[in-house]
């Protein structure tokens, strides 16, 4: 990945920059995830632990998101089932 196509909005102050490629990130967890994904060989033990815990948090949030997506799918399915029952 190259990071030439990035700009930081004027009012914003980045949470940090990647030590290895200089890419700025708006939040710490995105920076930590980026380091673990893009530079796995270069991390020290602290950065590694931070990555693993950020990864676990992300996993939790993804689980919530999946539940919401499932709910939306079910709603969509039954919504259309009812529409078809009424109209067709």
């Amino acid at each position: 990945m190259s990071y030439e196509g990035t700009t930081v909005p004027r009012r914003d102050s980045p949470a940090g920059e990647c030590d290895y490629c200089g890419h700025p990130f708006p939040t710490t967890d995105r920076l930590v995830l980026h380091k673990g994904l893009e530079h796995p060989q270069e991390l020290d033990a602290d950065e590694e632990d931070a990555f693993i815990s950020a990864r676990a948090d992300e996993e939790d949030e993804l689980r919530t998101l999946r539940l919401k997506a499932l709910g939306a799918l079910v709603l969509l399915y039954f919504g259309f089932l009812m529409l078809y029952a009424i109209v067709a």
Partner: peptide, 20 residues
Amino acid sequence: WLYLATGGATIGASALLASF
């Protein structure tokens, strides 16, 4: 309108599925 809504919903539903 129902035919069009079904087509649009197919795309939306597959995007939801992809998010899994």
